[in-house]
Design a protein around this nucleic acid. Structure first.
Lengths: 321, 321
DNA sequence: CTGAAAGCGCTTACAG
DNA sequence: CTGAAAGCGCTTACAG
């Protein structure tokens, strides 16, 4: 910047003014500075500017499980929409559902002085963020609640959604229903299993625990798990699948078998309506989850002392069969 | 940091040493500093550290069209894999295929002092990056080549892929084939259309330009465009669809019509194999595109003077029908 | 093993 | 409309 000032024959302050588009600079001066900038290939040092001004860098961090999971991708899209309206950049990192990576990525974003952070937690405890929050970092949790600290949070009504989806199968006359999902250390999986069980309890039906398959994380694993259920001597008559990949896997297994097995899934997915048979799903709105979480984040950035808010969004049963 | 030093009764330099895990600090001293850090909730200022040290922040930027497009999401996943191995954070931004946003996002990432940047360009010209590249920014283009500057680049063989896909339809006896794709300002669309036309020329067949539908960008738009083609007095007997969303839209239109219309798409997508009828596709490998682009980026970071490299990855025709 | 001094490249009051 | 001075919070040689 000193070089630019020297070349343009002005002071540092004037260069700074021109670069930042401040008013009250004589047009001729501004032109001279602009030319010097061009000739010297000058790039303002963001780190120095941010240090000197004390201002943030107008960015927020987003921590999701994986960029290539459509649920997270749509959530990220909602975050970007709101962040863009607030003229903030979104820096996305993935945790791969690994607590170590979550911690590294979260602290890494915090160290990078993001103004705030939105995260889908996967570690058993996020109290490692407490010092940063105390030092002014705004954090909002989405899809899953925080553990070890209180913070703003946006969730879907997983339990009610799973309850409604299961109830629909029960109303269809199915009595032996399998559950295919992640293990219950994943908050949403635990909640959806609870809704599944509650729907059975409501009609006084016992659940055969052998029909509950916890663990699969991918389409392929879910397909294998569903196959295993259907191969039992007392197979389920229907499957409730706990998220998009689980539902695709379950549908594949059912489809391959060719037998009439009922299926309801949690989360809508592309082409679910045109499969043969089509798939009924409990749809949540991932874009809206992202939007609301980001709105909470900017609210908190505006007022760090406001009480924490916990929002729960409804789900909708889409009947297609 | 001064507060920490005062509380621990040491100098700034010693605090710095402890924070950065430098060796040669007496255990007792280190413990005292660590405690002061804890008590004061101290967070090192990344901007200041990076300014003082002159070192980068160990991050790379990734500019894609949209986070919620599965093609870009998988590409991003490939980028993350390699970046993680190099212990770099990936900061993802989307351009929404808007040249203005691309420019803002790219310059924004550059200003944030990322070490390098991988981008899917959508603007007619990226020479706005020239000053930054001259000032040391490493940039690699992926999926589409740069315009207005020479740079490392990784592409799929779009033309050969589209040629093979079209040839398969022609070999199936189809003589009137429609093309559904983005407008040809999008590089990949133009290349794939060229392959489509070349395959026709190879067998001495003229293409009815009324069957070429350029413009749709979403599944819904592609479905409408395909419906329009099929509603013509002289409709196509088959459709070549130019990417994943186009193929899903075309499939929906064909499926709704119920008539036997051939279909080959560019890009594989989830459930393409279990639709009724299943969809043949020309598959590229978006994860590998991301991986290779990131490898080029780190190669360039290691040696800024190496000649630019342009890599083209093959595509594979997946026959399912 | 530890510290005092200088400086990274900007911006902020303040003065004119 | 323009500038001189101080300082943001760290790290880098250098010295001891």
């Amino acid at each position: 910047m000193a070089d630019v000032a020297a070349r343009a024959g002005v002071s540092l302050k004037t260069v700074s003014r021109v670069i930042n588009g401040e008013p009250r600079v004589a047009p001729a001066t501004a032109a001279a500075v602009a030319q010097a900038v061009r000739e010297l290939g000058f790039r303002s040092n963001h780190a120095a500017a941010s240090l000197a001004s004390g201002r943030g860098v107008a960015s927020i961090g987003l921590l999701i499980g994986a960029v290539d999971d459509p649920f997270y991708a749509r959530l990220a899209s909602g975050v970007e929409q709101v962040a863009r309206a607030h003229r903030h950049t979104v820096l996305i990192s993935s945790t791969e559902e690994d607590p170590e990576l979550e911690r590294d990525a979260a602290l890494g974003l915090a160290a990078r002085q993001v103004d705030g952070m939105i995260m889908v937690p996967c570690s058993p405890d996020q109290d490692y963020l407490t010092p940063d929050i105390a030092a002014g970092l705004a954090v909002v949790f989405v899809d899953r609640p925080p553990h070890g600290l209180d913070a703003d949070c946006v969730l879907s009504d997983n339990r009610a959604g799973a309850h409604a989806g299961t109830a629909q199968l029960l109303a269809g006359g199915y009595r032996r229903i399998g559950f295919v999902g992640n293990d219950t250390t994943v908050y949403t999986s635990a909640e959806r299993l609870a809704g599944f069980l509650a729907a059975h309890a409501d009609v006084g039906l016992a659940v055969d625990e052998h029909l509950i398959s916890l663990g699969p994380r991918t389409v392929i694993e879910a397909e294998a798990a569903t196959r295993a259920l259907l191969a039992r001597p007392d197979p389920p008559q229907a499957i409730f699948a706990q998220n998009g990949p689980m539902t695709m896997g379950a549908w594949r297994a059912v489809h391959a078998l060719g037998a009439p097995v009922g299926l309801v899934g949690f989360d809508d997915f592309a082409l679910a309506d045109v499969l043969e048979p089509p798939v009924d799903v409990v749809a949540q709105d991932p874009v809206e989850l992202g939007r609301q979480a980001t709105t909470l984040l900017f609210d908190r950035l505006a007022d760090g002392d406001r009480p924490t808010r916990h929002i729960t969004l409804p789900t909708h049963l889409l009947t297609r069969s």
